[in-house]
């Protein structure tokens, strides 16, 4: 269904780190006595995207739109229902992660890591910082105890924590600091890719700003590539090079950040931008803000045709009948709307 070219191991452009095609994930719905399979939650339904080396791809969308699931599939925390995930290893070898078993995946895990939203549940409370941050090294058999300890101390310094804290347990730290411990753990094996799933959403304004700066510094220092998931459009505009907008398990639009914010091509992108209140009272008063009606549909029973059509102010007869494909349009952008070229939509930024 996707109109994006499907690369193979040979044709993957040099600057692409991740190339995802036709990704699908259906979670079975079980009911009744012996948990019979009665249907599927189509959490991810045909997602295709490329992530270039060293860039930050932002992913936005309402909760339940499938942002976290995409990240988890790319890191193979879940088995996929269908699709292809090409990944360029640090030695330039290209592997299709979708074909690997859990065991075959293990050595690759050093190269891709994740940072979590909840600073409390993402750190095992019964492990010291040394054990937590050092665990990936222990698992991959990198270094002896002394080397691991030195490396952990160094990593703590890198994320702005004092190496003296190495024997403390996570309960000694605030939310923002715990987030940094999680970042140190993710960095332990020098990954090339980090998926940050709402990594600053639970933090206070001033702490979030500190941690965003840290993430950007680390990107520069270690040449990291980020998949940055958030529902904060201001944050994504600040940090991302390109942004993908998700709705009901599908990518609706992918575009370079500036273009997306100044000239969205998808009605959902426009609605999302209109909904976000800006810290600018005068601007809010003059901005046209028609709140989107209704709520995100049920992923177990998605609407026919364009999944956004029940809420779309521009919907026409065709929209409920035909599923629009993710098309590449002028300017290297991708959009999934029948009328992308005809609509003239308003962005959040002039």
């Amino acid at each position: 269904m996707s109109e994006l070219p499907i690369p193979n191991h040979a044709s993957l452009p040099d600057d692409v780190l991740f190339s995802v095609r036709g990704l699908k994930k259906y979670f079975p719905i079980q009911a009744g006595w012996l948990k019979k399979h009665v249907g599927d939650v189509k959490a991810i339904d045909d997602v295709s995207l490329d992530i270039k080396k060293g860039e930050t791809l932002g992913l936005v969308g309402e909760s339940g739109s499938g942002k976290s699931t995409v990240a988890r599939l790319m890191l193979r925390a879940y088995d996929l229902t269908d699709g292809q995930i090409l990944f360029r290893r640090s030695n330039n070898e290209i592997v299709d992660l979708s074909k690997l078993t859990d065991r075959e995946m293990r050595p690759l895990r050093a190269e891709m890591q994740m940072i979590f939203q909840d600073p409390y549940s993402s750190l095992n409370p019964r492990m010291t910082l040394l054990e937590l941050v050092g665990e990936p090294m222990v698992i991959h058999g990198v270094g002896n105890a002394g080397e691991i300890k030195d490396r952990v101390a160094e990593l703590l310094k890198v994320v702005g924590l004092r190496p003296e804290f190495i024997n403390r347990y996570p309960h000694a730290f605030s939310g923002g600091q715990r987030q940094r411990i999680g970042i140190a753990r993710a960095l332990a094996l020098n990954p090339s890719f980090i998926a940050a799933d709402e990594a600053v959403s639970a933090l206070d304004v001033s702490v979030a700003a500190q941690n965003i700066n840290l993430l950007q510094d680390l990107q520069e220092q270690f040449g990291l590539t980020y998949l940055f998931i958030t529902h904060d459009l201001g944050m994504v505009e600040h940090i991302a090079d390109r942004v993908g907008v998700m709705y009901l398990g599908r990518l609706m639009e992918v575009a370079p950040t500036e273009l997306l914010f100044s000239k969205p091509l998808h009605p959902y992108t426009e609605a999302l931008m209109a909904a976000v209140p800006q810290p600018d009272p005068r601007g809010n008063r003059t901005r046209k803000r028609v709140p989107l009606k209704g709520e995100i549909a049920n992923a177990a029973n998605p609407p026919s045709g364009c999944s956004f059509h029940p809420r779309c102010p521009y919907a026409q007869a065709k929209c409920s009948a035909e599923v629009p494909a993710l098309r590449t349009v002028a300017g290297g952008r991708q959009v999934r709307c029948h009328f992308a070229e005809e609509l003239s939509l308003v962005g959040a930024v002039a």
Partner: peptide, 25 residues
């Protein structure tokens, strides 16, 4: 003032780094 400066806003290019409040609460 410092809090407001540390919020990333749409369409305002604050350079690459966000001005932050040093330390923590």
């Amino acid at each position: 003032q410092a809090l407001l400066r540390s919020i990333p806003r749409l369409g305002v290019d604050q350079g690459r780094r966000l001005p932050t409040i040093p330390g923590m609460v």
